[in-house]
């Protein structure tokens, strides 16, 4: 493949990935409002189009036309920079996530992924750790008590849970022997007895899976760990002073991070895009993507289900849970997994 074709293919893939991700983000908000509505015995949005399916577009238009207020006491450059950092880092991680196997289009053979790098997992961890600045700076630069407390809580929480999150992945890495997300999916191919898939979830990484899910909920500031924006105490936490598109950028960043977490959970623990493949060639090349999307959808649904079910932690409980329970458990999981692999 020549350099020109490579750049062209990459640009097309980037445009497609962004389009799909942003649509997913928009419709996750609708799904959330619908599902939480039904959990609370209400209808949720139902006025804009049938079942409210145009609601995300209406919301987007509303955000664009709202007045964009910058508080006079804010640190202006950082106040502008914070939502940009949050959204950029949230959208960057999708670049290394594979959504399916290699496909053939005529003479073109290309992976369903923007960049297949051998340190894919580390890149996602790195980008996530830089994303903390968006939240921390938003809280600090707004120059308001509530924002400040929200920003402090968010950065402390994200830094603490990053450790448990990172350690929970090591068991998977021991089995796969690679940081490449594509290799990790390939390492989970095959079945036992013809029907139990060899997913990491069933290969002894059961504990790691739950550590990952809990730490990821804390990383994305979702209920039951949404202390940074606890509305009963902090108005809206770090984005209290933000309005219009700047607020929308934080909102989109949160949901894009949720999508990334769901993609990563599917790849690391549920075998990525593995599943029955049949039918004519075009269906065969698209079915894996469908299986992958199904897993991601299931994770997004669980996110919303948890939000509709659980109350919020207290802040000291949150920190104690992360440091005194999840972290030792993650380390124990590494020891046990290494022993199992070494003695096999």
């Amino acid at each position: 493949m020549g350099i020109g074709t490579y750049i062209l293919v990459s640009l097309v893939k980037i445009a497609l990935a962004l389009l799909i991700l942003l649509t997913a983000v928009a419709y996750t908000t609708l799904l959330e409002r619908k599902v939480v509505g039904h959990i609370q015995n209400r209808w949720g949005p139902s006025r804009v189009g049938p079942f409210g399916i145009w609601q995300p577009l209406a919301d987007g238009l509303k955000f664009i036309f709202k007045e964009d207020i910058t508080p006079p006491f804010a640190n202006k450059p950082l106040y502008m920079l914070a939502p940009i950092i949050a959204l950029t880092t949230a959208l960057t991680s999708i670049a290394v996530i594979p959504v399916g196997p290699w496909i053939k289009l005529g003479s073109l053979n290309t992976p369903l992924q923007i960049a297949d790098v051998n340190i894919g997992l580390l890149i996602i961890l790195g980008v996530t750790s830089v994303g903390v600045y968006g939240v921390a700076l938003a809280g600090w630069s707004s120059n308001s008590k509530y924002s400040m407390l929200g920003g402090l809580r968010a950065s402390a929480q994200m830094v603490s849970y990053e450790i448990a999150l990172g350690l929970s992945l090591i068991g998977v890495l021991i089995y796969a022997g690679s940081f490449s997300l594509r290799d990790i999916v390939d390492s989970q191919a095959g079945t036992w007895l013809g029907f139990i898939p060899k997913w990491n979830l069933f290969r002894g990484q059961f504990v790691a899976f739950f550590i990952y899910i809990m730490a990821a909920y804390a990383e994305t500031n979702r209920i039951p760990f949404d202390l940074p924006e606890a509305e009963t105490e902090l108005v809206a936490g770090y984005h209290t002073e933000y309005s219009s598109m700047k607020f929308a950028m934080f909102f989109m960043a949160e949901y894009a991070n949720m999508v990334t977490v769901a993609c990563l959970a599917s790849i690391l623990f549920l075998g990525g895009w593995s599943g029955p493949v049949f039918g004519p060639p075009i269906v065969q090349s698209l079915l894996p993507v469908f299986w992958f999307a199904l897993r991601v959808f299931a994770f997004m649904f669980i996110y919303i289900w948890v939000r509709g079910t659980l109350p919020r932690f207290r802040y000291d409980q949150l920190m104690a849970f992360g440091w005194k329970f999840l972290l030792p458990l993650a380390i124990a999981n590494i020891v046990v997994t290494s022993l199992v692999v070494a003695l096999k």
Binding site: A136, L137, G139, E162
Partner: peptide, 12 residues
């Protein structure tokens, strides 16, 4: 990620 977040945290 980690070290500089702590710096920013202390400044805040």
């Amino acid at each position: 990620g980690a070290v500089m977040v702590l710096f920013v945290f202390v400044i805040m």
